[in-house]
Amino acid sequence: MVVAIGLEGSANKLGVGIVKDGEVLSNCRRTYITPPGEGFLPKETAQHHRKHILPLIKEALEVAKMKPEDIDLVCYTKGPGMGAPLVSVAVVARTIAQLWNKPIVGVNHCIGHIEMGRAITKCDNPTVLYVSGGNTQVIAYASNRYRIFGETIDIAVGNCLDRFARLVNLSNDPSPGYNIEQAAIKGKKLLPLPYSVKGMDVSFSGILSHIEEKGRPLLKSGEYTVEDLCFSLQETVFAMLVETTERAMAHTGSQEVLLVGGVACNVRLQEMMAQMVKERGGIVYATDERYCIDNGAMIAQAGALLYTSTGKPTPWDETYIRQRYRTDEVEVSWR
């Protein structure tokens, strides 16, 4: 039995979670929220993480009813992500590993999302759609790697949604994507937008540029509402993601789809994916916002799997961070 504590801070979410043999004992989180129309910058995000991480570790231990001596393993997000926030959390992870005399494991953020999704939903061997503010990938497991079958060639789908939310001055509380989702429910009129699927890859920068250019005049004229534009953007980008995921399912022969990452919380995306998968006789798996959104438990889960399968921690001189750290670089020794 391995009890692992996981520290996540690759973007504006700071999470600390404790996992014991796949069971989540605690999963505490703080979010750095900026005013409407503004994004989050590395320096300020790192300051937020440094301010809250020690109280959050204490809270996670209290919720799990554990003490430092009960922890067997310290796990942290090695990357990918924003440099300053990653470093601020990695420093704390290295410090408590030394203070508590525990082994330490650096975890790939993307692998954390996948393994948390697999653990919670109990799916077997799914085609994975990983969609977040920093990543958009269609993934499947083969030969001890999570292989990337398709991905964005420019910006992530979550980044596209976030930047559009800033354009129309939607609130960042609790998240821009959630507020777009709620506004889109009231949308009635579909604005034709560029549909950019290139083989297995997708592109969102042109869609964003188009709606930035056309959106303001259409809103000013009253021809479209903010809700209409939210609806139009969602329907277009999600259709692209469903198409590439279906193509990956056909290639791998999989009958399961697992949605992970912050954007996977979106109910409309889940509905569209479920319709496609049902037509193929398959099943869609998704988790709620506790596990879709960046969290510490997913880092603890992936770190524990890596540690128990190899019996080795991350060498101390390799406990740095990597802003660019691809999903398919990690050897999946536990499957």
Rank of each mutant, 00 (worst) to 15 (best):
M1I: 06
V2E: 05
G9H: 02
S10A: 14
A11E: 09
K13V: 12
G15L: 06
G17F: 07
G22Q: 12
G22N: 13
L25A: 07
R29A: 08
R29D: 08
T31L: 14
T31P: 05
I33C: 13
P42E: 01
K43P: 08
Q47K: 15
H52R: 11
H52K: 13
I53L: 05
I53Y: 01
L54Y: 14
L54D: 13
A60T: 09
L61K: 06
E62H: 11
A64N: 08
K65N: 15
K67S: 12
P68V: 07
E69P: 12
D70W: 06
L73G: 03
C75V: 11
C75D: 04
K78R: 11
P80K: 14
M82D: 07
P85V: 06
P85S: 03
V87D: 15
V92H: 09
R94H: 14
T95K: 13
I104D: 06
N108G: 05
A119Y: 12
T121S: 06
K122S: 15
P126N: 02
T127N: 04
V128H: 00
L129H: 02
Y130M: 11
Y130A: 10
V131M: 01
S132D: 05
Y141W: 10
A142P: 04
R145F: 12
I148W: 02
G150T: 01
E151C: 00
E151W: 03
E151V: 06
T152S: 04
I155E: 02
G158V: 03
L161V: 10
L161R: 02
R163N: 14
R163A: 04
A165E: 08
V168T: 11
V168S: 02
N169T: 14
N169L: 14
D173Y: 14
P174D: 01
G177I: 05
Y178E: 12
N179H: 07
N179M: 08
I180Q: 06
Q182N: 14
A183M: 13
I185K: 13
K186N: 15
G187A: 04
K188W: 07
K188T: 12
K188G: 07
L191S: 07
P194M: 10
P194H: 09
Y195W: 11
S196K: 15
V197Y: 03
D201M: 09
V202M: 05
S203I: 03
F204D: 03
H210W: 09
I211M: 01
R216N: 09
T225K: 00
V226T: 08
V226A: 08
V226H: 01
D228T: 01
L229G: 02
C230F: 02
F231I: 04
S232K: 00
L233S: 01
A239F: 01
M240S: 02
L241T: 00
E243P: 02
T244N: 11
T245D: 05
S254N: 08
V257N: 00
V260Q: 05
V260H: 00
G262I: 07
L269R: 03
E271F: 11
E271C: 05
A274I: 08
M276N: 02
V277K: 03
V277M: 00
K278W: 10
E279F: 12
T287C: 08
D288T: 03
R290D: 15
M298H: 00
I299S: 09
G303Y: 01
L305T: 09
L306A: 13
T308W: 10
T308N: 09
S309Y: 12
P315T: 06
P315K: 07
E318L: 13
I321Y: 11
R324Y: 11
V332Q: 08
S333F: 14
S333K: 10
R335L: 14
